[in-house]
Write a protein that binds this DNA or RNA. Structure first.
Lengths: 350, 350
DNA sequence: CTGTTAGCGCATTCAG
DNA sequence: CTGAATGCGCTAACAG
């Protein structure tokens, strides 16, 4: 680190140039209090000439606001999160806030450190995809009394506003559809169920199986940490079962590449030999050959709701007193060509 | 906007609790100057008990730094940019900076407004995918003397550090490959060439065609604004030429979905009836059927170089005096199954 | 209508 | 080794 040398043109410079005082300049620039139209002109002119940009940092320090919202997400490599971040960014910009973005890598330690950093930057509010959402971490947030809304995943005790997708219902609907098509052995590939979104998707699957009167086969359920290889590994295992499934439900888009690769490797024909459906829709699902069925969720809607909820809390003290709410965003089942009736023949790849 | 009510525990609170002065607390917390080991213990204890987080905003105001880096990109919907943003985010976190992210939507007006906002937030540096990179916009940046590196695209006169991909060479290599396979009519679908990255890709294409001794056919070149529909429209046009191309070079991943959809719609067989290659690799290119050839570029490498360059400038005054540099990141040609020798037969879809 | 002044939370002289 | 005082750039009283 080294000495700073940049010098910013401040309110004082403008005041001098306009032949008035800082207070007046502040007033016209913020259009607050009284001032003569004539002074206004002079100030504006000086502002223009000096190419003055107010220091939001100093302004905020004074007003106890930072015009900044933190967004804490697992990463920016999954379309699931980037779509979210993009929508949120748009909305916040429109509302006059800047976005402070950090990724947690789903690492609770990093998450907590980043949270502290953000608090240090005096964020006005936080949009958060919590990693574990444990009491301790939520405590440090609540203790600062920073408005916060948890998205996609919930925190322990639902102690903050929360907006999630209908994970259980969406998952149930997807599996139900496969069941109606006649599938009786449906593989489930999901992510770490210590995250409640993943857990709910697994529950949705289980419930559908159970409601259909089928016996649950634990070997059909593959739960692991979502890495780029997990989809492949799990698919591989499913394919090598004594009685392989006739359909696979991928509980996250991040799993799909691996699934596709392994299916391709074994030349498993979709959907003839294996039906497929995924939670969360991706662009290439449409023109994949065959197109892939999916549970579609609206990232825009979750973003809108989250931002609305957060801004309410930030901009109104009464609102900020209300107890946390829990909302969920509905889904849509997009049935495409990857889900059809099960194969009659024996699996060719065994 | 409403009155703030949150109260932050400050240095003074810690000082009181530790029975010392703010100056001393500041010293031990920053490990600067002298202080007794014993005092240190007391201070640390108080810090812990009060769960104190220093206000980086106030600290920065004093030190004329903000511990904040701005990242200005077109959007977060294209894997091209999100991969970049993700890598940058990682690197900056590691270096102790927070990321202020905004998207320009490739709108120069929005871009300039956002730039001003960021300057208002006193960013220590800026990583920037400029929209047009016009003199005026660069001026407002330079006038503030904010270290900046332009990535992916260049600004007018290369007045700031710049890191780009080898757009021309990569494009040339891709087309060259198609030519060597025997293609003589190669369609080009690209984005707005007022961005120099797009322009260079077009130039690379043109040069390859010319070097091969082929006559350029302007109708084979489709240049438009990249929207989700542009790939479809352009492909549609190419398919309906009197003599359609036997191969298509998509100059951006954002174009591919449209291309794929249209090809599917007309049941054009890839690669038998149409070869395909794309600038920038995507995950689904691998397991698409057939897999798709691509010019692969390393988002990590461009991120690393950009961050390194920026941090140098920020953390060393001498470095910050050196003239702007222009670097380019090399590419790799990934030949997969979508590029083969041209069809012999007449196009079936006409 | 306008100018002066007092902090916001902190790091940093400068005296002890 | 430590504490009191100053100011970063700005807004919000408070007097004119």
């Amino acid at each position: 680190m080294t000495p700073p040398d940049r010098k910013r043109t401040g309110l004082r410079d403008v005041a001098t140039a306009a032949g008035t005082s800082v207070a007046t300049v502040s007033r016209v620039l913020n259009n607050t209090g009284y001032f003569a139209e004539q002074t206004r002109a002079r100030v504006l002119k000086a502002t223009e000439e000096l190419n003055y940009n107010p220091s939001l940092r100093a302004k905020g320090l004074r007003q106890k606001r930072s015009f900044t919202i933190g967004l804490l997400i697992p990463n920016l490599l999954n379309a699931y999160y980037t779509a979210l971040a993009d929508a949120i960014s748009q909305l916040l910009t429109k509302a006059g806030y800047q976005l402070l973005l950090s990724s947690t890598r789903d690492d609770p330690v990093l998450e907590q450190a980043t949270l502290r950093q953000m608090i240090g930057h005096d964020i006005d509010g936080l949009l958060w995809v919590p990693t574990v959402g444990d009491r301790k971490t939520v405590d440090i947030l609540l203790s600062q009394n920073i408005p916060c809304v948890s998205i996609v995943r919930r925190v322990e005790g639902d102690r903050v506003d929360t907006i999630v997708f209908e994970d259980l219902a969406g998952s149930y609907a997807a599996v139900k559809n496969l069941l109606l098509l006649g599938h009786e052995r449906i593989g489930f590939i999901g992510g770490d169920i210590s995250y409640n979104s993943n857990n709910d998707r697994w529950l949705g699957y289980s419930k559908a199986i159970k409601d259909a009167g089928l016996e649950a086969d634990a070997d059909l359920v593959k739960i692991g940490t979502v890495r780029d290889t997990w989809g492949s590994i799990a698919t591989d295992q499913l394919l090598h079962m004594k009685v392989p499934p006739t359909a696979i439900f991928a509980a996250s888009n991040a799993i799909m590449p691996g699934v596709m690769k392994m299916l391709l490797q074994y030349q498993v024909a979709i959907p003839k030999e294996m039906s497929l459906i995924c939670f969360d829709d991706l662009d290439w699902f449409t023109f994949s050959n065959p197109s892939i069925s999916a549970v579609s969720i609206s990232h825009e809607r979750i973003a809108e709701s989250a931002v609305a909820l957060l801004l309410q809390r930030i901009e109104s003290p009464e609102e900020n007193k209300r107890p946390p709410v829990l909302m969920s965003i509905s889904f849509e089942l997009l049935l495409r060509k990857s889900s059809v009736a099960p194969r009659r023949s024996l699996p060719h790849w065994k």
